[in-house]
């Protein structure tokens, strides 16, 4: 078994990227999308999620540990690559580099974002009912808005293109035609999920602008 370690880690990394981390990303962005329907709708969703039984177990075993493993092993995978876009400027090689770049961006973004939100709730500095206001105040800053925009789009790209490579890594899309079609499908997913995420950011941002005026 020990000689299969790289194989087991790699498959675990791949699986965790989709379930639960990818699934959580989509769920999280969908929840945030309720911000487009106003503060009451958003806070209702937040409180509903926060009322789930065994919440802390869910958070630790379905979100925190999987992201930690995927992120740390992902950094190791990214470190092992020696990008050569200069001599091979093909589409797939570009996606290979982007997958690694967006992985690192996502890691930085997630760390900052969790610190600003979940950790502040845990420290008792912010109440769950105040999360809407917290997001409005964070995104009222132009730089933070840009940072969140990049972070969300990077995470969604990483997830969508990761789905493409997940399908290859498990041997589901095998031939060039299947892999081409899954490229189209995952890029549509990228655009659609990005739209959901960015719409939520814009909702908070517009609320901030309205407050400011």
């Amino acid at each position: 078994m020990s000689s299969d370690r790289a194989f087991v880690y790699r498959r675990l990394h791949s699986l965790l990227g989709v379930i639960p981390v990818g699934a959580f990303l989509v769920e999280h962005l969908l929840t945030n999308y309720f911000a487009t329907r106003g503060e009451a709708a958003y806070t209702e969703k937040v409180l509903w999620l926060n009322n789930l039984p065994f919440l802390i177990l869910l958070e630790v075993f379905f979100i925190f540990l999987p992201i930690l493993f995927h992120g740390v092993y992902g950094l190791y995978i990214a470190y092992q690559a020696k990008p050569n876009l200069g001599s091979f400027g093909t589409f797939r090689n570009t996606m290979f580099v982007l997958q690694r770049v967006t992985g690192v961006l996502t890691l930085i973004f997630i760390a900052w974002h969790v610190w600003e939100t979940r950790v502040q709730v845990a420290l008792g500095n912010v109440a769950k009912e105040e999360l809407y206001d917290l997001m409005v105040s964070i995104l009222s800053n132009g730089w933070m808005f840009a940072f969140y925009l990049v972070g969300v789009i990077a995470a969604v790209f990483h997830f969508a293109n990761g789905l493409w490579s997940f399908l290859v890594s498990w041997g589901i899309t095998v031939g060039p035609r299947a892999q081409r079609i899954s490229t189209y499908v995952t890029m549509v997913i990228f655009v659609f999920v990005s739209y959901i995420g960015v719409a939520a950011l814009l909702a908070f941002r517009n609320a901030a602008v309205a407050l400011g005026s």
């Binding site: 000689s3 790289a6 194989f7 092992q80 091979f88 797939r92 090689n93 290979f96 490579s165 890594s169």
Partner: peptide
């Protein structure tokens, strides 16, 4: 290929098939 240096190391850049 399940062991050290095997299939797990592939990152799907797909330069090989082009080259």
């Amino acid at each position: 290929i399940m062991g050290e240096g095997g299939l797990a190391e592939c990152g799907n850049a797909q330069n090989c098939v082009q080259a």
